[in-house]
Structures are given as C-alpha cells and as structure tokens.
Amino acid sequence: METDAKAGPGPGSAAARARGRLPTQLRTLVCERAVLDRADGSAKWSAEGSCVLAAVYGPRQARIQREDAERAVVEVVYKPRAGLQGPEHKALEAEIRGVLEGVIPLGLHPRTSIMVVLQVIQEDGSVLACALNAAAAALVDAGVPLSSMFASVSCALASEGGLLLDPDAAEEQAALARFTFALPYHFDLTTKGAAAKAEAAEGGGEAVVSSAVLGARCGGDFSPEALLEALALCRAGCGRVAAFGRLSLAKSLQALGGQ
C-alpha cells in the first residue's frame, strides 16, 4: 500500500466505522477505581467492547531471587480473557513492564516488588492501550509514587490508507498496520500554567502531553510518514484520555473534599 509520502495518510474516512464513529473519535471510556478489596490498588478500565481489570500489590518485600538492592522490581502479569498465557502475552507483559518502569521512580523503594496483575475481561480491539490505562489508574489508586502520569491510545492504518483511532477488533483485523503509544502527561496547576490554558475550564487546565514517548508497539506494513502521523493522532487521543483520567480521579477523591 503506497501512501502519499509528503503528507502521510491522515485520518481515514468516516463511512467505514461502526456506529458512525469518526476516524479520530475514541470509544466511550469508563473507569472504576478501588474495585478489589484485597489489592493495594485496583481499577477497571473499559472502552466499550474492551475491558481490563488491573490490580496493584506493593511495594512489598520482593522474593529473594527477584530482589534488587538498589531499586524496586516491577512484575507484570497479563491474564488473557480465556485460556492459558501464551508467548504473545509474555511479550505484552514485557512491553507493559517497560512502560511502568519508565514512570515509577524505582530507587524510592529498594528491595521491594510492585506487582501489577492485568486481567482482560472483554476483548474488542486496542486491548494493550486499555491494559496500560487500567494499570495507570490502579497505580494511582495504590498510591505508588509516579514521576508522571501516562495515557495510551491505539490506532490502525486501514487498508484504504486512512488512520483510525482506537480501533475495534474488526478494524484491527482488517488494518495494514497497528500502532499503540503510551505517552506521559501532567497538568500544570500553577497560576502561570493555568492562565496559559484559561480556555479549559474544568480540571485545573488542559493536560500537557509530553513530546516524549514512553512506549510504542507497532506492527504491520507502514511507511515512516504513517508512523509519525499515527503518533500525532495518538497524541491528540492521549490528551482526551488524560482529561477523562483526571475527571475520574477527581470523582474518586470527592469523598476527601477535593475539587
């Protein structure tokens, strides 16, 4: 599939998507926090057809074989919706662990382990992004120190040449290439930062999505232009996921009197 080398593929056409979704539109997000009683932190993140339950245990004493005298060890367990864990799930675990190690200041809790268990509940495309967002929400719920928050969004390069944000399983299946990016973000609550983003009324200002990339997983047949275009599209998507994440965090902390 040859794409326009100068401009990149750009967002796809609206006609093809289920339920009349626009190419740059995310599915409806739902996030529940503190759903599990025994875990130190937990969250359930769903995007319509896809749903992942994340549980965080720790920081707790690491097993002797795993222990690191200098830093905390991050362990990720990815449990597929059905059946046993296969090599592709092990690869996902490594991918997720890399992202989490990028945001958790590991030196803060040496000799401990932080375990993140991800149980896929429903699978309808963009599961890795869903799992990463669930892990992020669960880590915040557990109170594990993080140097920055992160959001993750997938997109797919459709066979007609356009990019589709947050693809479902059918779109992923038909796509020429699939991309998932995890991008760090934060909010600027200082008066200067707030004034610069005065137009964003709620949540203390718009999310500042970093230009750095925390994690990326790309596969398929695509040009470098398509990759950059996908990154730009996912960055915009992450901004919206970030805004939602903050809203859901504020809601969960309402009992403490937070605004």
Partner: peptide, 18 residues
C-alpha cells in the same frame, strides 16, 4: 498561598512554583 489547596492533584502535576 497561590497553591491550589483543596484541588485534586495527579502524579507528575506541577503544583506550584518554588
């Protein structure tokens, strides 16, 4: 006291200038 006391803060947020 320009700090946003009483506001919900997430990890990595810039809360106030030193």
């Amino acid at each position: 006291s320009a700090a946003p006391v009483g506001k919900v803060v997430g990890p990595g947020d810039k809360v106030l200038d030193i």
